[in-house]
Design a protein around this nucleic acid. Structure first.
Lengths: 143, 143
DNA sequence: TCCGAAATATGATTTTTATCATATTATTTT
DNA sequence: AAAATAATATGATAAAAATCATATTTCGGA
């Protein structure tokens, strides 16, 4: 459903949402084990997320990655969008360019509604909201 | 959502469902244009689908690919499963192996329901049923 | 102001997916 | 039987995604 990069990015962002803020940062070396993402690959992903203002960072000693209050207001979907683009989840299931409600592919009307619900959920829910479950122990990322 | 192979396979199978039966076959050269799938790649996909009994084939002159009544009773999901495997659509959205209802990832309870509806639809609907819309002109594959 | 720590930039390598090409086998028609 | 046709098997190439490695920049502390 999501690319590996998308899964990795979401895990990292949610983990950061749970564990960090402007005064509590984490470095790549603190993140790659709990998120189970290859270290060097995670580093590259975080750089990309940072460039797109999904996460925040500061260089040098005492630096690291973290999420500001504003960062936590991004939707879950926004993270996916930045990493995987919007076509992966939103384009026609059969990849037909001209498919739309007036001129639908065979699957359009059948998968459309449930997919819209799924995407609606991802677009409404913020990273901060989701991370509350982590904080409560109602969900987990690291085993 | 689906791989290119998955999209291509579904388009080809649905097109065959609409146009063929035991006495009306189509060859690769008749299929690659309406389905917009690269010819040689389509050939390989059809071989694979044939091997998995998703479609039927006969060699030699007057041969080609076609769908029997039994073939048309396969679910849409079965085609996806054969080409993309079942992990792509069914595994944890974050790719966490140990994720389940008792030990859920942060997204589990939010995406689970709508995804279940989506997959349920794909699993219940048969290729034959879907192709009826094509026959009625209520949906399309070829432009 | 210099040293070390950390992100950033860049790019190389590997693996997977997608694509292309061709030789082989089976079947129908002549 | 031979010839032509169409799937089948196999493998080569190209493109994209994932992974790994390293040099550079920025910042804090001694």
């Amino acid at each position: 459903m999501l690319s590996n990069s998308g899964k990795y990015a979401l895990k990292a962002v949610l983990y950061l949402a749970d564990k960090t803020d402007s005064s509590n940062k984490l470095m790549v070396k603190d993140l790659y084990q709990p998120t189970q993402v290859p270290k060097a690959y995670l580093a590259k992903l975080l750089q990309n997320l940072s460039k797109h203002n999904i996460i925040s960072s500061t260089k040098g000693p005492k630096g690291g990655y973290y999420l500001t209050k504003e960062n936590k207001e991004n939707s879950v979907y926004r993270v996916i969008e930045v990493i995987d683009g919007n076509q992966r989840m939103e384009a026609c299931v059969l990849g037909i360019e001209e498919c739309n409600a007036q001129h639908p592919c065979p699957l359009h009307e059948y998968v459309g509604p449930s997919r819209a619900v799924l995407l609606g959920t991802l677009k409404k829910m913020t990273i901060g909201e989701l991370s509350l479950d982590l904080k409560k122990g109602a969900s987990f990322i690291s085993s």
